[in-house]
Amino acid sequence: GTPVDMLNPPEGCPFAPRCEYAMKICLQKMPPYVELGENHRAACWLRVQEQMAKEKSGQADAKAGSQTENKEAGDHE
């Protein structure tokens, strides 16, 4: 692809025009950084979605674990 014109940067992600996974939001808004590991981060809407799904799954797991703990505590009374 062609390099980004730094005097007139695009509104969204500068890689969107040449990214095979680009979505509409990529052309409209720059994604926030997502921590992928120690000293490794990315600014990509796909990674943002993955992180949100992970967090949602983690919250669901924590809620299920809490309900199990409450049930077990009730069983021992």
Rank of each mutant, 00 (worst) to 15 (best):
G1D: 07
G1W: 10
T2G: 13
T2I: 10
P3N: 12
P3F: 03
P3T: 12
V4C: 12
V4S: 07
V4F: 00
D5M: 01
M6L: 13
M6I: 13
L7D: 14
L7F: 05
N8H: 12
N8V: 01
P9N: 10
P10S: 06
E11N: 03
E11R: 08
E11F: 03
E11G: 03
E11Y: 03
G12R: 06
G12S: 01
C13N: 02
P14Y: 08
P14I: 02
P14C: 03
F15S: 15
A16Y: 00
P17K: 06
P17E: 03
P17I: 05
R18M: 11
R18K: 09
C19I: 06
C19K: 08
C19M: 04
E20D: 15
E20L: 14
E20G: 06
M23V: 02
K24Y: 07
K24H: 09
K24D: 15
K24R: 15
I25P: 01
I25W: 10
I25F: 04
C26K: 04
C26P: 03
L27M: 07
L27H: 12
L27K: 08
Q28D: 11
Q28C: 01
K29H: 11
K29Q: 05
M30W: 04
M30Y: 13
P31N: 10
P31F: 09
P31T: 07
P32A: 00
Y33P: 02
Y33S: 14
Y33R: 08
V34H: 00
V34I: 15
E35H: 02
E35Q: 05
E35N: 09
E35K: 10
L36M: 13
G37F: 00
E38W: 02
N39V: 06
N39T: 11
N39R: 13
H40S: 14
H40L: 15
R41W: 02
R41E: 10
R41K: 10
A42N: 11
A42R: 11
A43D: 04
A43Y: 05
C44W: 02
C44R: 06
C44M: 02
W45P: 07
W45S: 08
W45L: 03
W45T: 07
L46W: 02
V48T: 01
V48E: 07
Q49G: 08
Q49V: 08
E50K: 09
E50S: 05
E50I: 08
Q51N: 14
Q51K: 13
Q51Y: 02
M52K: 04
M52E: 12
A53E: 15
A53R: 11
A53H: 10
K54P: 01
K54S: 10
E55S: 12
E55Y: 04
S57H: 01
G58L: 13
G58W: 00
Q59P: 00
Q59Y: 06
A60G: 09
A60H: 05
D61A: 15
D61R: 11
K63A: 13
A64C: 08
A64R: 14
G65R: 09
G65Y: 05
S66N: 12
Q67E: 14
T68F: 05
T68Q: 12
T68V: 11
T68G: 00
E69W: 11
E69T: 12
E69L: 14
E69Y: 06
N70E: 11
K71M: 10
K71I: 15
K71F: 13
K71G: 06
K71V: 15
E72N: 15
E72K: 07
E72T: 11
A73L: 14
A73F: 11
A73S: 13
G74Q: 14
G74D: 09
D75R: 14
D75F: 09
H76I: 15
H76D: 12
H76E: 14
